[in-house]
Amino acid sequence: MSCVQTIQDYALRSIGIGERLLPRSDFTLCEQFTLIGSGLIWNVYFGALALFCGFFLATGLALMRNSHLHVLRKPSEWFIFLFRGSPLFIQFFLAYETFVMLPRAGIEFHLLGAGFTAGTGWLTRAWAGALIVLFLNTAAYSAEIFYGALRSVPKGDIDAADAYGMSGLSRFRRVIWPTMLRLAWPAYTNEAIFLFHATTLVFFSSFPAWQQKGDALYYASYFAEKTFNPFIPYPIVAGYFIILTLLIITLFNFVNRRLNRHLPQVARRRLKIRPQVIR
């Protein structure tokens, strides 16, 4: 079977398009590259969506944490401690068990006098359940980063905004928020990279891969198990992830340059990648 044929059969295998059966023996390099690359679709899906949604929740949480009000600060502090203080692995397990325990038939609730039934089956599936966990997790980590940045917004900036007569929402939107993002961006880039790395945990924790539709690591371990040779599939995953990491850095660098565009060249902060492996 030629490599083009393999790509046609397996390039979209992870989302259920193409050949149903996975190759069983005599694996070629082409098959390994194609299938593992196909699994990468899931990693990008989880990472991108969780990061996008998490960004907004994180901003809210950081603001709550910075608030003077006890009722706002405490829940945010607890949320951040809960998700940053425990392993993501355990969070996945816990979420899955919780979702499985929800009644299968759905939850009935009444809204404005009319009865609704919300199905819960989709929550036990990886595309939704794992996404929720990753979303909450990255929100907690990013909130801590944003909170740190919020605390170090220069006082002079806020005084200047006050002097211009800005207050409340407009002061936040036009002065505090952009500065906070600018200060937080290098750390936030790291967070994004390691969030993408964390997506490999999804199918290795409790969420089952339905019809063998898994992520890059799922297929890599499939090959490693079948061939008992870790020296080919795992370096392939590693290669894919290095490329993905470089893409993220390029993308975030672009935003970083835009956030810092009003500063003189020397004062611009370069992105620096620091290790923060597992959550």
């Binding site: 790395h197 870790p230 995953v237």
Partner: peptide
């Protein structure tokens, strides 16, 4: 080398390797 690659890949790889 450990920066760009998910650590779990290393864990699975090193144990067999």
């Amino acid at each position: 080398i450990v920066r760009g690659v998910p650590d779990i890949v290393f864990f699975l790889f090193f144990v067999i390797a």
